[in-house]
């Protein structure tokens, strides 16, 4: 099973560490957006990616469970940006930009910066099965203990 950037918004403290780290790793532009309510938004690398469907130049490509963006093929038509259901694609001047899962870091065997830097553990680089297993455990415990949950 492949590794993905997975998010637990209930853990997000809106500290913007992921934005600052992502911007530093990507020439000043963050590919992740943190909402003040505590949700980091970034490319979900969809299996059936709407952005990829609408891209007519082949600038977006799916490979090994990732949606890869080829900047040099982008015409800046913004169709992908309109199609993305999460608003996780930005426009930098004349070209789109989106999360590349820190491909430059992974080449050196390092994790994506947002997942490593998140102080609250809201963003992780893990596989879906492990992530769901952990969440089931937490939900089950909470159910068994019967604590009233207020707020988040």
């Amino acid at each position: 099973m492949g590794y993905e950037v997975l998010v637990r918004p209930e853990r997000c403290i809106s500290c913007y560490a992921c934005e600052v780290a992502c911007a530093r790793e990507h020439g000043g532009l963050s590919n992740v957006w943190v909402l003040p309510q505590g949700v980091p938004i970034l490319c979900r690398h969809c299996q059936n990616a709407a952005c990829l469907e609408v891209c007519y130049t082949g600038a977006l490509e799916q490979r090994d469970g990732e949606v890869i963006f080829h900047r040099e093929k982008c015409t800046g038509c913004e169709l992908c940006l309109l199609a993305c259901p999460f608003g996780a694609i930005g426009l930098d001047g004349k070209r789109a930009y989106k999360c590349d899962l820190c491909s430059h870091r992974r080449q050196e065997g390092l994790m994506p910066a947002c997942a490593l830097t998140c102080p609250a553990g809201a963003i992780s680089y893990s596989c879906v099965a492990d992530f769901s297993h952990r969440k089931r455990g937490i939900a089950g415990l909470s159910w068994a203990m019967g604590y009233e949950r207020r707020g988040k």
């Binding site: 560490a17 780290a21 530093r24 490593l116």
Partner: peptide, 22 residues
Amino acid sequence: IGIEYITDHPLTKGALCPKGNA
């Protein structure tokens, strides 16, 4: 030329807040 996360520390496991990142 850049910062790197130190993942073997018992407090942070590599994490840094926005200030640390900057």
